[in-house]
Nucleic acid binder design. Structure first.
Length: 583
RNA sequence: UGGGGUAUCGUCAAGUUGGUAAGACAUGGGAUUUUGAUUCCCAUAUUCGUUGGUUCGAGUCCAGCUACCCCAACCA
């Protein structure tokens, strides 16, 4: 009987965003060109949410032969600083992406200004002198139409003069704004005469004192995309309602530029996807700042922070992070992804690249009673069974060893396959050993075990006569007391005890008279998110470099902290190993 | 008393001319294992927010309803 072999060619599903790009290309839009941009505002550090945007902005450009530029969205000098630009670049590079050019929204300030002047001349924009409060009042509400500003129909010449004045440096901030004349009754709030320019009177870190009036995001983004040749302007869902305005401003820019056919071609197309959400983490920049300022964490790159630099220091690999992002996909569904999926993606990648070592995190002494006191044996340990090319290193064995306290139990449950009276285990890379039935350990006055005794069974090492001896016990790890070194181990746990800290904090704030900041956060913070402990590790670890990926066998994935030195080793727990031995 | 967006397993997510519910994580069971890791098997939605309708046949079409998210910053 020959089974009919059905060769099902299942193509990898692609996201709706990619679908759009693919179709546009197939239809020959934009002359068959494809271009994206990643547009961070340089006012803080990138976080895992940005990584999702980076992955699609750069990823799609790469896949479809386009270019992705890095464009700093620097239209608000109040909040931005050059120090963030370098950090942003470093993070993108670390994730493994390359940009075409580094561009700045501020590069377009003159063009934006000229366009605004032209729009005023065409009666499409006017200078409003109302206060911020007045403008807010007459804007209406989502259910009530707004009313026109008394300045809406002022003479063009007047607006032109005032617009110049706004930029003179002589006008106090907030005094006037330039508004687009659209429709104060439009159900889309963004169409109710949006503000195009405001007076800030602040020097800009790139343009210095040249400008005093600065363009708003909505008046900037689309035109920059258009002038730059961006074909697909990918962003997150909260910008959906901005899209009609984005399109309108691009139309106007096209017309003023002489292309008065607002065609569905040769123009950027905004596409919105769902932003990343993960259980037990918080991504709002404002709240992250509170954590740093209040000293809840030790800076932006604290391994508990969801920033890219925090993740890097934590030991998550770029490949693991990107694999996770690929798994959750890009949709329009407001998803809350489970941390377990992220951890599984990270473990999967780390399993391939982490160097296996022995580290005893909660040590208790084990004495091999039938091994001579002055004798030392040296074994070869495989660095990574998943990748032979990673080679081997040497480890020393002697009479006194450190093993994990939890690997010994006097009164153990039936399924405990480790050390105890009369029990046998394999010492990783070494002998099978056996504890005596009687007097297998020594205790102090409080009943704490201070020493465990066992004897090795001869000829049980790899390749020796009894190597294949069947025992009930598992294999445990160890380090030689005389040869190991002390290290600092930082075990990180989730910062937040609740699945959705953002919602919980908001709820708590509402229920407690609107308390803000750290007070609203504290009830949900995990007091044990960092456990620092002393551990005994094998000597080979002094040869490892900062950020190297490690696996403490049977414990978890760790990496070398940037502050680690051979004299003072510091390891961060990235994520524990999966543990199916639940109590 | 507005506009826009979204609803498929515990969590994500495929499902593109309507043809009889992919996959991943999680979970449970088993095999292999000098990491109770890895790897490998097996199980896991008579059902697609809800109610009706069209149809021989609907997650896919139509109508109503419900829930959640975004928009009233001179932030991006």
């Amino acid at each position: 009987m020959v089974e009919e072999i059905k060769e099902e060619v299942r193509t990898e599903p692609i996201s709706f965003v990619e679908e759009i790009v693919k179709n546009d290309l197939a239809e020959g839009k934009n002359g068959g060109r494809m271009q994206t941009r990643f547009p961070p505002e340089p006012n803080g550090y990138l976080h895992i949410g940005h990584a999702k945007a980076i992955a699609i902005d750069f990823g799609l450009a790469q896949k479809y032969g386009g270019v992705c530029n890095l464009r700093m969205d620097d239209t608000n000098p109040q909040k931005e600083d050059t120090e963030y630009v370098e950090a942003i670049k470093r993070d993108i590079e670390w994730l493994g992406f390359k940009w075409g050019d580094v561009l700045y929204a501020s590069d377009y300030f003159q063009q934006l200004w000229d366009l605004a002047v032209e729009l005023i001349k065409q009666g499409k924009a006017y200078v409003d002198e109302q206060t911020s409060e007045q403008i807010a009042d007459q804007k209406g509400t989502p259910t009530q139409p707004g009313v026109n500003s008394p300045y809406r129909d002022r003479p063009v010449e007047e607006s032109l003069r005032l617009f110049e004045e706004m930029n003179s440096g002589q006008m106090e901030p907030g005094r006037m704004v330039l508004r687009a004349k659209i429709d104060m009754a439009n159900p889309n709030m963004h169409f109710r005469d949006p503000i195009m320019y405001r007076v800030l009177n602040l020097p800009h870190w790139r343009t210095g004192h040249k400008w005093n009036a600065y363009p708003m995001y909505d008046y900037t983004h689309g035109q920059c995309d258009y002038w730059e040749g961006v074909t697909h302007s990918i962003c997150t869902l909260e910008f959906v309602s901005h899209r009609p305005l984005y399109d309108l401003f691009v139309d106007w820019a096209k017309q003023v530029g002489g292309d008065d056919q607002p065609l569905d071609d040769n123009r950027p197309r905004q596409i919105e996807f769902n932003k990343l959400n993960l259980t037990h983490i918080l991504l709002s920049k404002r709240n992250l700042l509170v954590l740093v300022k209040e000293g809840v964490v030790n800076g932006w790159d604290d391994p508990r922070m969801p920033t890219i630099c925090g993740f890097r220091r934590r030991g998550y690999s770029p490949e693991g992070i990107l694999s996770f992002i690929d798994k959750i996909g890009y949709t329009k569904f407001d998803a809350l992804n489970q941390m377990s999926l992220f951890e599984s993606a990270v473990r999967d990648d780390l399993n391939k690249r982490a160097q296996r070592v022995s580290a005893v995190v909660d040590p208790v002494k084990l004495i091999i009673t039938n091994f001579p006191e002055d004798k030392v044996e040296v074994y070869t340990a495989v660095n990574n069974p998943e990748n032979e090319a990673d080679g081997t290193h040497e480890i020393e064995f002697s009479r006194e060893l450190w093993i994990e306290r939890e690997d010994f139990m006097e009164d153990a449950p039936a399924k405990f396959f480790r050390l105890g009276p009369g029990k046998e285990v394999r010492l990783k890379n070494s002998y099978i050993i056996r504890c005596p039935e009687e007097n297998c350990c020594k205790k102090d006055a409080d009943g704490n075990i201070t020493e465990i005794y066992a004897e090795l069974i001869p000829e049980t090492k790899t390749g020796e006569a009894n190597a294949n001896m069947k025992i009930k016990g598992k294999t445990i790890h160890w380090v030689s007391c005389r040869h190991c070194i002390e290290a600092e181990v930082r075990n990180y746990d989730r910062l937040w005890m609740v699945e959705n800290p953002r919602d919980e904090i908001a709820k708590y704030s509402d229920e407690h008279g609107g308390v803000k900041g750290i007070e609203a956060m504290r009830p949900f913070l995990n007091p044990d998110s960092l456990e620092v402990r002393k551990a005994y590790v094998e000597k080979w670890l002094t040869t490892r470099k900062p950020l190297d990926y490690l696996q403490f066998q049977r414990i978890g994935y760790y990496n070398v902290d940037p502050d680690s030195t051979p004299d003072h080793l510091i390891f961060n727990r990235t994520v524990g190993l999966r543990d199916n031995w639940k109590k």
